[in-house]
């Protein structure tokens, strides 16, 4: 009964606060849209210089995927490289080709090299060698970076915004004295925690449904598995964000101090969420991963959205997420002892 009253109050507050409501729903949509445009833009077209390459070879080259300029000697090409007119040039040193790159941007480097590889590789095999046929267990050759990052980012935004909103509203409850007032009523501490969980939980279901629906059906983020599973994962992730946010807020005295926890508690989770390959992270740091909720949520989201896995593959991740929430809830109950002993 008291839990329902608190749940209702939190929803009323959210509905009154149109601006925050808008932030929670439209900010993730805006950022996801921008990321979609950033990652799914056109491929980079490398600008390649050719020095003293025989006409016969140049004619064979497929010019659609690169801008090719021919130079008569290497110093000319070098000048062009310094001026930024080409990203790299290729020169035949007594028969064997050598490549010289501008080199300051890794993305440009690899685009240039891969173009040179594919172009000259084909030629050396006489142009009619058997193509290596590639099949995919998961994903496809059309899969872009956005499809791979997407599930992680979806999880991250839900986590980030719920963490902030829950933390800040609990801090407000403390600084305005309403927490004290709440505690002067016969409400139990677990009822306060549960009221918050249900209030924000209901809101989060709506929020993550909208965001996931938008990412998948409007932006066309890769989605092989079941939408219900995606919702279940984001909901459990939001629950950890909520309970962690409230817990962290008891170590902050005002809203600004809550914001200060973002680089410590929220941002590092991105590094272990699979956005970067976990195996290449330094051993000094990689052990942190299994202690962050986003690690499990991102893994489960990618299992469902990219690999099309179902309940059987994700349930362990879900149980761990639930475990995080339960631990945080328990600690919240203890943290509230600071304000009332019973």
């Amino acid at each position: 009964m008291r839990v329902i009253a608190l749940t209702k109050r939190i929803l009323q507050q959210l509905i009154h606060d149109k601006r925050t409501l808008g932030l929670l729903i439209f900010a993730p949509i805006l950022v996801l849209t921008m990321l979609h445009l950033v990652f799914n833009g056109d491929d980079y077209v490398p600008k390649v210089g050719m020095v003293e390459i025989p006409e016969a070879i140049v004619e064979q080259i497929d010019m659609t995927e690169a801008e090719v300029t021919t130079y008569n000697d290497e110093s000319e090409a070098e000048k062009a490289l310094v001026a930024g007119a080409v990203d790299g040039y290729i020169v035949l040193n007594g028969g064997s080709p050598a490549v010289f790159l501008e080199g300051s941007d890794p993305t440009v480097n690899s685009a240039t090299i891969s173009w040179i590889h594919s172009t000259f590789g084909e030629m050396q095999q006489g142009g009619n060698a058997d193509y290596l046929e590639v099949d995919y267990l998961h994903g496809s050759s059309d899969m872009g970076s956005f499809d791979y990052f997407g599930p992680v980012l979806l999880g991250f935004f839900v986590f980030f915004f719920v963490f902030i909103i829950a933390g800040v509203s609990f801090i407000r409850e403390r600084t305005t004295g309403t927490l004290e007032r709440l505690l002067s009523t016969p409400i139990r501490k677990w009822e306060i925690v549960m009221g918050y969980v249900f209030g924000f939980g209901i809101f989060t279901i709506i929020q993550s449904t909208i965001i996931a629906w938008y990412a998948i059906y409007v932006l066309g983020m890769m989605m092989v598995g079941s939408f219900v599973h995606v919702l279940l994962i984001t909901l459990l992730l939001a629950l950890t964000a909520l309970t962690l946010g409230i817990l962290i807020s008891s170590f902050a005295n005002n809203e600004l101090q809550m914001i200060q926890f973002i680089p410590i508690v929220v941002i590092p989770q991105i590094f272990f969420s699979g956005l970067f390959n976990l195996e290449t992270i330094s051993d000094w740091l990689s052990w942190v991963g299994p202690f962050t909720p986003l690690y499990y949520a991102a893994d489960a989201l990618r299992d469902v959205m990219v690999r099309g896995h179902g309940w059987h593959e994700i349930y362990i991740n879900l149980i761990i997420l639930l475990g995080f929430s339960l631990v945080f809830m328990l600690l919240n109950g203890l943290a509230l002892r600071k304000y009332r002993k019973i």
Partner: peptide
């Protein structure tokens, strides 16, 4: 309490 302790947004 000394502070008004009301939900101002309600």
């Amino acid at each position: 309490a000394q502070a008004d302790a009301l939900y101002e947004d309600l």
